[in-house]
Every structure is written in structure tokens, then in C-alpha cells.
Nucleic acid binder design. Sequence first.
DNA 1: TCTGGCACTCTCGATCGACGAGTGCCAAGT
DNA 2: ACTTGGCACTCGTCGATCGAGAGTGCCAGA
Lengths: 347, 347
Amino acid sequence: MSEDRRLMVLRAIVQDYVQTSEPVGSRALVERHHLGVSAATVRNDMALLEEEGLIHAPHTSAGRVPTDAGYRVFVDRLSAVKPLGSGERRAIGQFLEGAVDLDDVVDRTVRLLASLTRQVAVVQYPSLTRSTVRHIELVPMGSSHLMIVLIVNTGRVEQRVVDTGRVLSDGTGESLVATIRARINEVAAGVPFTVAATRLRRLVDEADDADRAAMEAVVSALGDALVEEREERVVLAGQANLARAGTDFPRTIGPILEALEEHVTLLRLLGQLGDDPDLVSVRIGTENPVTGLQSTSLVSMGYGSGAERVASLGVLGPTRMDYPTTMASVRAVARYVSEILDENQAT
Amino acid sequence: MSEDRRLMVLRAIVQDYVQTSEPVGSRALVERHHLGVSAATVRNDMALLEEEGLIHAPHTSAGRVPTDAGYRVFVDRLSAVKPLGSGERRAIGQFLEGAVDLDDVVDRTVRLLASLTRQVAVVQYPSLTRSTVRHIELVPMGSSHLMIVLIVNTGRVEQRVVDTGRVLSDGTGESLVATIRARINEVAAGVPFTVAATRLRRLVDEADDADRAAMEAVVSALGDALVEEREERVVLAGQANLARAGTDFPRTIGPILEALEEHVTLLRLLGQLGDDPDLVSVRIGTENPVTGLQSTSLVSMGYGSGAERVASLGVLGPTRMDYPTTMASVRAVARYVSEILDENQAT
DNA sequence: TCTGGCACTCTCGATCGACGAGTGCCAAGT
DNA sequence: ACTTGGCACTCGTCGATCGAGAGTGCCAGA
């Protein structure tokens, strides 16, 4: 009853099932994989694997299918992340090269991931809270309004219009804007967002009475940009891949699409990465708390400029998925995007 | 053989079919609609309608289903846009109120449309080419790089980083930036984009030799923002609604989802509006050239601040769709969004 | 021109049986 | 203590058959 062989059998089952998408029986197994034993032996092993809850028979007289736990063991102990071919590496580079914009980078990334893995790709925008302020620009609009443009080290840009409640188009107004601009950049530029937020708050207290109202308006708008849930965004691509694979996927396309429209829950999901930020995280089927995604697996990884991971990206597909290859793609893309952000950062 | 009655019959067929999604027979028709005639008479009318190509029988002994041409007649001659309830109007207002951003407006709009119509919603970002420049800001980054922030009257903001090829952090560099900023805003602010583009180009020629290179870099980056296909963007929501309606929709969910990922073709589609920009445009089934969307109808309308329509929005659903209600929703949302943009414009 | 009646056509769903895949278990072999 | 071939058994799948029901087309009469 060698435990090793049982795991080999599990591995073979997963591989075959992923490839054929049909329950795999003992006979087929011994034919396709040269385990040195007979079908009967494999059947015994299968019975044990089933007892352990790693595989499962849809009905009495069908082959076996891996359970979520089975996939888990496969991912953790029976497979290695398969390195990408050089062609694919090159394709990634070419596809992401020449993005002009953070928006553009994110857009290309999500499409690339989707076409690479033929699954649904999910990319989170670099989070503001984990970034640093690069510059804050104030642009007067109309007589009393001010547009605040916030530029972050990841290249992300947010803007907001506030009413300062006083005339800005005359001489004193203009110098006020200049003063505020200088002040806030002085304390905030190059500083992590969380720190900047508190420093800015202090700035309001120090302001002259005359300028306080305007300063207050600007600072609280900046604060909003952080608190607001909108600051966290995800982008999807490849939903069509859910339909492909014909009837393969459960009839549950509806619930999945619905779950994908709940960006808030998606973000929460992406946020829960494994411990090591440099490792690909895999969440399989029911390991995943979100209703509607319990027949899917999420393969994700953090990315970001510098050492910090500022956001995550990943792909979502049926639990019956080619994990080694998918993991390789996700990892490669995450690394590449990180590099690109690094370059932009250096700029 | 009164033509009028025949059209009444067509209308009844469309209405019933939309509601039940099952082919409608002569008996059911006379029962549900009090046309003052017998089933046999209706059958004769149906035979004629079929000859005209307005309805069609899936098989010998089933009821009739409207053809694309039948829906067309229904939309053009047999239905009025059904005004929205006051509750719905209020809901639209509440949902769109409090958007902080153009991104936010677009995002809320697309979600609103999707949930209102229970179909796939499509919203195009206000096109740059049809907008006017509000302000252009230059922010030095690092020693020789410049971030250009372009603010448009619709509230849209684009940014781009260029390398000017000379040091900007010293005194002369700073004054150079100030000069360029002043110059370009002088000629471009408040001006339609197309005009601004040519004026800016001229500015390069007039520049001092010393400053020309920097000016050139800035202007050509601004030009890029226009030419680039990226400048046109669409946002989708409600894909899950395709799956809802169970098997109702053809098995063609896959192709539809694929077509929806081709943003370029979607944009072209949205671009082809009817003549009157204030009217809802309806494209039914095969009237639509895009492969994969030929079993769907697109209900769309332009929107935008001021008199000009700067972009379109709409919904996409099965040809078997409640046209009057959908058209009402699309029109209401388009108008509301236009209002909001107007307000922002005024700001 | 409309209407009731009637024969005809076709789809849909249920039933049934043969087939085949795959298992579980047992007894024998190593 | 494992492994293996054999064998009976279980079920799901596939195809054919059949009846019911819905809907039509057409005709003859009002």
C-alpha cells in the first residue's frame, strides 16, 4: 500500500481529467500512464483515495474525478510550476511593451492574461493606500472651483473638483492657490500615502484663518480619494472563455458572471493572498468563500513596483484547470508588470 | 383583408412572444387579446404576415415567432416609447447623483443601465475629438521628464509622460516649463480639440530654437492622445444578464461574449447612430453587421454636454426584447447623463 | 370576407431495453 | 502483505417507439 503510488495515481487522474474532462477509470489510467501495476491494483488505490476524500465518483459506474481536496494535494505536492516557453516569454514582453499609461498597462495586462490562459483574467489597480504620493497639482476652474490632480508613484492619477468657496481668479486668489500647492507638495510629495494623509491633516490646523477653508477643502478631498471604496478597482477580461469549453463547465455560468460583477467581493478575494508575496496563490473551489465562485479556482499573485506588492492579478477558471501552466503564466505576467512599473517609477 | 388588423395581429404576436418566449398560436392570441375575430381569421392573417416575411414558424405545428423584419415594423409603426414611472425616474437620479468623477459617472451609468433593463449595458467614454480642451497642466518629474495632464470639458482626464531631453529642475528649466504651460493654454484652453491640435502644431514652429525640442515633445504627446485608438473606450456591465433567461437565449452566449470583448467593433457600432441625435436608435438582429451579435438587438442613443453628442450609450439584448420599455430606459438615462455632464461643464 | 370544422403534421416527453463502462470483491498467485 | 485476473452487478447513455397535444391549412357554408 505504498503511499507514493497512491499519489502517483492521484496525479495521473488529475492530469487525465484536466485533459479529457471526463471521469477517468482504472483501465484508461494504466493504459495512458505506465504505472507498473494492473488495473485492479489501481482500483484498490482509488478506493483508498476516495476514502481520503481526494477523488469522487459521479455515480456507481463511472470513473473518478478529483475533489477540491484532491486538486489541493496535486497543487501542493504533486506538481511543479511549469516554466514558460521562450516564445511565450517574448510574447508577453512585446504585448506589454509600449503601454503609454497606467490605464494602458492594466488594460493590456488583463487582456494578455486572458488570452494566455484562456480563462477569465482579473487585474486590480495599484492601491492608493499602499503607494506614495508623487505630486499634487491644483488647477483653478471657473471662479471658485479647484481641480485637484493627484499623481501616484505607480503612475495612477486621480482627480477631483472641489468648491473652495472663494474667488480664485483675482491676484490674491492665484497666490493662495500657489501657496497651497507648494505647502501640500512640500509635506506630501514622495511620501507614502498613509503618512501623507496625517501630515496633510496637520497642515490644515497650521493654516492662516483666511486660507484655512480653502486648505480644508483640498485636504478633505484628498482624504476622500483614499477612504472611498472607489479607490479600489478591478478590471476583467476573457469572460467569453467561460462559455468556451462548451458544456464542460457546470451550467453555472450565470452565477459566475454575476459574482464577477461584484467588484467589491472580487477585490476582497484578491486581497487575501498567501503569506509569501512572491509566490503564486491558488484558491480551489469551495476553499473560496464567495457564493457563485465555488466551482472555480482563482490563481493569483501580487505585483507592484519596488519591494512592496501594491496590488494583485490573477485568473479565474474551472477547478478542472491546468494548474502548472496557469500558475506559470500568472507568475510570469505578474513579474513582468512589476518590472514595467519599476521602470515607470524610476522615470 | 384589412391591413390594419394584420398589423394588430403582428403587434399581439410580438407582445405575447416577448412575454412568454414561446411561439404563439392563433388560439392563444384570440384568448389573450380581444381582437374581435375568430382564430381561423387570425390564421389567415398570419399566413399573410408570413408571406411578407414578418413572422415565421419554427416548424409546421408550432406557433409563430416574429422575424427581425417583424420586430422592425413593430418598433417603427406599432409601438410608442413607454414613459418611465416616476419611481424609476427618481431611482435614476439618486443613482447618478453624487458621482465624483467622470470615471465614476460612466461606471454608475453602465451599472444603472444594466440593472434597469436587465440586459448588457454599453457606455462609450466621451470622445476626445468631439470635446474641447479645458486646461493642460505640466508637472515636472525627475530631472528631464514632464507629465502632461490634459483636462477636457467633459471631465475626462488623460495623462502622459514625455522626456524633454533637457534638465528641467534648474532655474531656466523651471521657467521653460512655465512658459510652455502658459503658451499652450493660451492657444488651446476652451477650444475644440481639433482646432487646438492645429494651433498647437503652429506653436512649435514659432518657438525659440532653444525651446523647440521641449515644445515639440509636449505637443506631439498631446497629438498622440487623439490619434491613438485608445482614446475611444467603452465600458460594459450586466454580462450576467445574458445567462439569466436560462436557455431562452440561443446557445450562442459564447460568440456574444466574444463579440463584446472586441471593443473596437463595439465602438464602431455605437458610432453608427440614426440621423436625429435626440432619438433612440434600434438595430435589430441581422441589421447588425457584427458577427456574433446577429441574434441580438442594440438600443442606443447619443449623449453629451451641450448640444453636441460626444458619445453613445445603449443596451444589448436578445432580439426578443421589450423594446418600448428598453427604449424608454435608454433615453431617460442618456438624457440624465447629459444633464450631469452639463452641470460639470458649467462648473 | 369571416367562421367552424376537420384531417394532417410535427414536436415533445415518457417508456423500454440493450449496451457498455466501470466498479467492488474474491480467491489465487508471488 | 500486496498484487492480479476474473466475474457479477450497477448504472447511466443511447436509440427506438409511441401517444398526446398543439397548431396549422384548407374547405364549405354563412
